[in-house]
């Protein structure tokens, strides 16, 4: 155990960093794109069903297929991986933001209008705030996906903890498999836990379970 860390410790830290980097960039892009689209959709309900349906279909495509399809388009490396992970992160955030915003009590919106808030002010100061816990739940789900699929992204040359797992599989070395699996499992569980806590804090006290 100790000798393993002496030999591979630096590499392990690098891979963990790559993994976090890949996951967070994709997730960040997902949030930046999905939240505004969802806000737009609440104002254009006619196309909302179609857009969310389309995103659901994309979500159904197995990650391995999606990642492999990126190779002919973008080649190998971290760019195709980030694009694929980004696509995966979209749906949960999009759907939850849309649902969250739609669930905002219409009388609250009327009140916002009544006190002279513009459409923009109403979205930022009232709707997003009220929908925050639901949006956060979507982000949390996306984070789980992205961390999981970033492991697979190693196969198309994106680096990350998947490198250890694939090397371990290729050489039948359980130490390498565990050196990749254990940190990635911890990373997933810790991220899920922290985002769960944020979700809880964002939830108004009156409706906490």
């Amino acid at each position: 155990m100790i000798s393993f860390f002496q030999a591979n410790g630096a590499e392990l830290i690098l891979k963990i960093w790559q993994h976090i980097y890949l996951s967070f960039i994709s997730l960040g892009l997902g949030i930046i794109v999905a939240v505004p689209i969802a806000i737009g959709l609440t104002r254009a309900k006619k196309i909302a069903g179609f857009v969310i349906g389309l995103a659901s279909v994309l979500q159904t495509v197995p990650s391995m297929a999606l990642l492999a399809l990126m190779i002919p388009i973008f080649g190998i490396g971290s760019l195709p991986a980030i694009v694929a992970l980004f696509i995966y992160s979209l749906l949960p955030i999009l759907r939850n933001t849309y649902i969250g915003l739609n669930n905002v009590d219409p009388s609250v919106l009327d009140a916002a209008k009544g006190i002279g808030m513009s459409n923009m002010q109403s979205i930022i100061q009232v709707e997003l705030k009220l929908a925050a816990p639901v949006i956060m739940a979507g982000i949390r789900l996306s984070a789980t996906f992205v961390i999981a699929w970033a492991t697979l992204a190693s196969y198309i040359g994106a680096g990350g903890l998947g490198d250890f797992i694939f090397n371990g599989l290729n050489l039948y070395r359980s130490d390498l498999i565990l050196a990749g699996s254990v940190p990635v499992i911890l990373l997933a569980l810790i991220t899920d836990y922290i985002l769960g806590k944020i979700e809880y804090v964002l939830t108004p006290k009156s409706i906490r379970v």
Binding site: S174, V184, A188, L189
Partner: peptide, 17 residues
Amino acid sequence: NVIQTIPSLAMLSIIML
């Protein structure tokens, strides 16, 4: 829920062992 959060490649490799 915890099982679900574990990345599938990690799970697959560990079960393979």
